[in-house]
Amino acid sequence: MSVDTSQPIAHAFTAARAAGRSLPAYPGTPPATLAEAYAIQATAIARWPDAVAGWKVARVNPAFATQFPEERLIGPAFAANVHRVGPGGTAQCPVFDGGFAAVEAEIVIVVAEGAPAGKSDWTADTVAPFVQSMHIGVEVASSPLATLNDIGPGAVISDFGNNWGVVVGAEIPHWRELETIAVETFIDGQSVGSGKVAIKPGPLGALAFTLNKRAQQGQVLKAGDVISTGMITGVHDIRIGQQSRHVFAGCGELQVQITRA
């Protein structure tokens, strides 16, 4: 995808995000390849007036695996959208009215140190030294475009990975002793999903993927970056004014209050 093609798409998404407004349709032709999608993402990041403070990670839907042949995708988490809350705390998180909005219970990793440049063969077995801490958390997924996820991974990547918040909750100090963590998500008091996350293939695998992807992009992770490592209980649609609660068995819980971007 040429710069002339990626620029208008990046401009449309960033302008809508800055204004807190929705988009009626994808602003152009959705990217057909990973290279095109990440080119738009890079252009949009360069346009956004905030520092990247970490990354969200998500699985690529198997239905799109042939067109987008990577197991995961990443998108930037900006400093203003990283919310740290204490045990049992509530984060105030904005979403786009008329756009896509969802909450996802996730494990969040805080990166311990910068990675060596150019190394792109990290695995779940080798990334533990880069974990400063592991936390219970939530990704707040939101885009000005309500149908972003339906269009596919290329569209998701192009619009900041459909991210508009990473909530960093209580630390899990004993994560090295755990194989799995059971999690349940509630919205306005009603259970909407439950699941278990396996620490090594899940969070550590997501960290390895992010290290490798950024190295392939000629970049590195920095100490203090947050990595939101992938949904555990599902992707749960949520509306402005609603509140979600996320319970991580034996590790704590946190809440998210949804506000208008």
Rank of each mutant, 00 (worst) to 15 (best):
M1E: 01
V3F: 11
D4V: 14
S6W: 06
Q7P: 02
P8N: 06
I9A: 08
A10I: 11
A12W: 12
A16C: 09
A19D: 11
S22Q: 03
S22W: 00
S22L: 03
Y26F: 15
G28E: 14
P31N: 05
L34Q: 06
A35Q: 14
E36S: 09
A37S: 11
A37D: 07
Y38S: 01
I40A: 05
Q41G: 04
Q41A: 05
A44G: 07
W48Y: 05
P49G: 03
A51F: 03
G54V: 02
V57K: 03
A58W: 06
R59F: 00
V60D: 03
N61G: 01
P62N: 05
P62E: 09
F64I: 06
A65N: 06
F68A: 05
P76T: 08
A77K: 10
A77H: 09
A77E: 10
F78S: 07
A79E: 13
R84F: 02
R84H: 12
R84G: 06
G88P: 12
C93D: 09
V95G: 09
F96I: 04
D97I: 07
E104K: 13
A105L: 11
A105P: 15
V110L: 09
V111R: 13
A112R: 14
A112N: 11
G114L: 08
A117R: 15
D121H: 06
D121V: 04
T123S: 00
T126H: 03
A128R: 01
P129A: 10
F130L: 02
V131R: 06
V131N: 05
Q132E: 11
S133A: 02
S133H: 00
H135F: 06
I136D: 15
A141R: 08
S143K: 15
P144Q: 07
P144V: 08
P144H: 12
L148T: 08
N149H: 04
G152N: 04
G152M: 00
P153A: 00
A155V: 04
A155P: 00
A155Y: 06
V156R: 13
V156M: 13
I157M: 00
I157D: 00
S158Y: 10
N162T: 05
N162H: 03
V168T: 05
E171A: 15
I172E: 12
I172T: 15
H174N: 13
L178F: 12
T180A: 02
T180R: 10
V183N: 01
V183C: 01
E184H: 11
F186M: 09
G189M: 09
S191F: 04
S191L: 11
V192R: 14
G193A: 08
S194K: 15
G195W: 12
A198G: 04
G205E: 02
G205L: 00
N212F: 03
R214Y: 03
R214E: 04
A215Y: 07
A215R: 09
Q216R: 15
Q219K: 15
Q219N: 09
G224C: 11
I227C: 03
S228T: 14
G230N: 02
M231G: 01
M231W: 01
V235M: 00
H236F: 05
D237H: 15
D237Y: 07
R239L: 14
R239K: 15
I240S: 12
R245Q: 09
V247L: 13
G252F: 12
G252Q: 10
I258L: 13
T259R: 12
